[in-house]
Amino acid sequence: MLQLTIQIAVNGLTFGLIYILMALGFTLIFGIMRVVNFAHGEFYMVGAIGILLLFGTLGFNYYLSIVFAVLCVGLLGVIVERVLLRGFVGRELNSMIMALAVAITLQALAAILFGPQEQSVARPVTGVLQVAGVFIPRDRIVVGVIALAVLIAFYLFLRYARYGLAMRAVAQDPAAAALQGIRPGFIYSLAFGVGSLLAGLAGALMAPVYTISPFMGDVPMMMAFIVVILGGLGSIPGAVVGGLLLGFVESLFSTFFGSTIATMIAFGMVVLILLFKPSGLMGRAQ
């Protein structure tokens, strides 16, 4: 029983870290630009395709491929923000529809360039670690450690770096931030770039674990939605709490009742939160 509990907790933690990675960017973009980024799953997908190309086809070092792929996704995010989304900042419904259009277009481009079929890359790390009867796949440990490191770096960036501070300022009060000489346009690009970079990292990390296809982003985007609503749209601590919560709930219910029921429970939590506390578990009331 204890072993099972620990196993469920470990599984929940490994799911949760990836969810947090997805949700952080999503919530950052919403907090700063008021854009519900329906294209977030597509940046995840582009990150995974980067690994397919660099690590799978060209045979570069896996970790080097991650760095390069993730930077490219960040750049793509900046371009998308600058060219397509900038005019819609603050208009929640229209910007959301524009993000949907971006999602559709990116999916189609990926399908045209890389084919619609599911592909896979060799796992750079294999094997299973067994500690006190609990099984942990080694590749999941790598994913977890990298995700955790990036999360801490991201936290330090927001907390102490000049631009991190500027981002938080714009999220709190764009007008007051502008009065302090912070250029909102630059912060929008930065936030969207960092947000898509984090999504791309999640995709790059999960590429060897799951199969890669143009439509692989749908499920992680849904998970990011759930996490962010549970924690509170725009709230960074909320994304962490929501991600861990979703990871554990998913791990618990899929162990006993199957994954469809687990997803249903997650959506059920979303409905309840939206009805009774729309600002989320950690969000500020509006």
């Binding site: 609503i229 959506f267 939206l274």
Partner: peptide, 19 residues
Amino acid sequence: VKGVYFVLLTFAFGEIIVL
């Protein structure tokens, strides 16, 4: 529920029905 929250609420509700 209004605005974006209504969109996300109906999104979650719809997906529950499909599931």
